[in-house]
């Protein structure tokens, strides 16, 4: 290879990749302007599910709002959001909100289409009193609360590095290995009947009852309702064993199957 072609190759070596990604994003859809009530209702939600509101990026949707919104009111609403652990990243609405977005240093996204569904922020179970004395022969976990309707997605082929699969509104069931570099997302539970070597994020819209089941835990990351553990921590226990992962308080609990 001549020096010339070497240079050429380096020149063409990509420095970045443009990719079509899919992010799950929570929308805060404003229906009317009432900062006081907004603050109070938001505080109630936070109390129900504190983990859901830790640095959660949100888009403030203004499409439904019929009242005029001033710079000052918007700034007030944004700071209420931040006080409660939300990170507003953009506004959503028609062109008439562009100046407002600019003044607030927010990106303006075009108005939404249908297909958005309300998130039921799952209430956290009140700290359970007695029956938590971990019986040794752990009984099959009590049937977890059924995932929201829409059931789920069944995948029968290996999920390879670079692939992402999202089961919206339900469970994700994979009957094959999940490679390192692959990503599984589900609003409900995730089952992997094979080794789990990639990332698995259950309860991505905040369902704290969601669980992850796999035949061999070799994951890069597991997460339930935003609480996560990376491989470095996972390796310390039950590595390569069949396990289920659930959320207890704000910690992930890993139990052998």
């Amino acid at each position: 290879m001549t020096a010339d072609t070497t240079l050429d190759l380096l020149d063409n070596d990509p420095v970045f990749h443009l990719k079509g990604g899919m992010l799950t994003m929570t929308l805060v859809e404003l229906i009317r302007l009432a900062p006081e009530q907004f603050a109070r209702q938001l505080a109630e939600k936070v109390e129900q599910a504190p983990n859901f509101f830790v640095d959660t990026p949100v888009v403030i949707a203004l499409d439904k709002l019929s009242e005029p919104l001033s710079d000052m009111t918007l700034r007030h609403l944004l700071s209420i959001c931040r006080d409660h652990g939300l990170q507003p990243v953009a506004l959503r609405g028609g062109e008439d909100f562009r100046a407002l977005a600019g003044n607030a240093d927010m990106v303006l996204l075009p108005p939404g289409r249908q297909r958005e569904k309300p998130i039921e922020v799952a209430a956290e179970p009140a700290p359970k009193p007695a029956p938590k004395a971990e019986p040794a022969p752990a009984p099959a976990p009590a049937a977890p609360a059924p995932a929201p309707a829409g059931s789920g997605k069944i995948i029968t082929e290996p999920v390879r590095g670079g692939q992402q699969i999202y089961a919206r509104g339900g469970d994700l069931i994979v009957l094959a290995p999940v490679s390192a570099g692959a990503e599984l997302l589900a609003d409900g539970h995730i089952h992997v009947y094979g080794p789990l070597r990639g990332r698995a994020l259950a309860g991505v819209t905040g369902d704290r009852q969601a669980r992850i089941f796999c035949q061999s835990l070799e994951a890069e990351l597991v997460s339930i309702a935003g609480q996560y553990k990376v491989a470095e921590d996972l390796r310390k226990q039950q590595w390569k064993a069949p396990v289920q992962i659930s959320l207890e308080g704000d910690r992930l609990k890993i139990t052998g199957l």
Partner: peptide
Amino acid sequence: VRDSDRILGLLSS
């Protein structure tokens, strides 16, 4: 092996 895994992903999609 990782790169082959990615290629297998492309082949199947």
